[in-house]
Design a protein around this nucleic acid. Structure first.
Length: 305
DNA sequence: ATTTGTGTTGAG
DNA sequence: TCAACACAAATG
């Protein structure tokens, strides 16, 4: 779907993104309802909208628009005044950031913000004009009961990463998790094994944690604290991960969590240390691809951000 | 025949 | 920036 060019009549230095915001507090403007929804009113007495960014249409419907860099960006027409208002809110959120002035109290859910940030303004505008935003958002956000569906990149918020040591990928079947990171991002407190406590059932043996990888595959590791080395470790299940991912010393494991509404589950992925022959080969292949023209790999279409 | 949404103007 | 208003372009 080619867009971007036609939606905006004037948009050159499009550098606006969710990063550049620091405005006023979120203000709630609109409220109840009480519109003489009566169609066709003498153009003279046509009601002006009580909502920001909403303008009456000659046929009794409502249009939504937002201004950007001196020009107007049309967000479409709607049957209901409030539907138009909501459309404006979404656009405002995407164009001006989470602190944008909106008609309704936005439930600034992390998931929706991430969803918005992951789409270009043009894409968002397009969804609004087609009245398809809610669906797309829902679809992007849900991935609940569904099975092996990878959490979309935009919904992953990084926690921390660690370059694995030789022993992490050795035959000890354990990954040492940096203490500070562990206590900050993993279930805590994780009851530690104390000589005194002896047989405190609970989680003296650690807890089982699920981690989803980039392919949507779920890995389960035992997470526990080793008194002997005074360190947090991922044990049971770890060696399998190392083997299957072909993890080598120096590679980096990245831990993140899902920003989707539901239970924030943990995610794990690894960045291979680019060095070995395969990587080189891959690079060469990539070069060849580029020689044939435009970069095929990069995220296509999506412009601006 | 309608509806959408752009041109344009003037107020804030 | 923003909405009111007029009306041409777009759609069915």
């Amino acid at each position: 779907m080619e867009q971007e060019s036609m939606v905006f009549s004037c948009n050159s230095g499009g550098s606006t993104s969710m990063e550049d915001d620091s405005f006023q507090e979120l203000i709630v403007a609109g409220d109840g309802d009480d519109v003489p929804a009566a169609a066709e009113l003498p153009s003279s007495a046509r009601p002006s909208s009580r909502y920001k960014g909403v303008v009456p249409q000659p046929n009794g419907r409502w249009g939504a628009q937002i201004y950007e860099r001196h020009s107007r960006v049309w967000l479409g027409t709607f049957a209901d005044e409030d539907a138009a208002a909501r459309a404006y809110d979404v656009a405002a959120l995407r164009f001006r950031g989470r602190d944008a002035v909106t008609n309704y109290n936005n439930n600034n859910h992390a998931g929706e913000l991430a969803f918005l940030a992951a789409h270009s303004k043009a894409e968002v505008v397009d969804m609004l004009r087609k009245h398809t935003y809610d669906d797309e958002l829902r679809q992007g956000l849900r991935r609940g009961a569904a099975r092996a569906q990878p959490t979309p990149p935009w919904a992953r918020e990084p926690l921390f990463e660690k370059a694995v040591t030789p022993s992490d990928v050795g035959k000890l079947n354990r990954l040492v998790v940096p203490k500070q990171q562990a206590e900050r991002h993993f279930p805590f407190p994780l009851r530690r094994n104390t000589a005194a406590a002896g047989g405190d059932g609970g989680n003296s043996k650690g807890v089982l944690l699920n981690f989803e990888d980039g392919d949507g595959k779920v890995w389960r590791f035992r997470y526990s604290y080793w008194n002997s080395s005074q360190s947090y470790v991922l044990t049971k299940g770890w060696s399998r991960f190392v083997r299957e991912k072909g993890l080598n010393a120096g590679d980096v494991v990245v831990f993140s969590q899902s920003a989707l509404g539901m239970e924030k589950h943990l995610l794990i992925d690894c960045k291979k240390r680019r060095n070995n022959k395969q990587e080189v080969a891959a690079d060469e292949a990539r070069v060849v691809v580029k020689l044939f023209g435009v970069d095929i790999a990069g995220d296509k279409g999506v412009v601006q951000r």
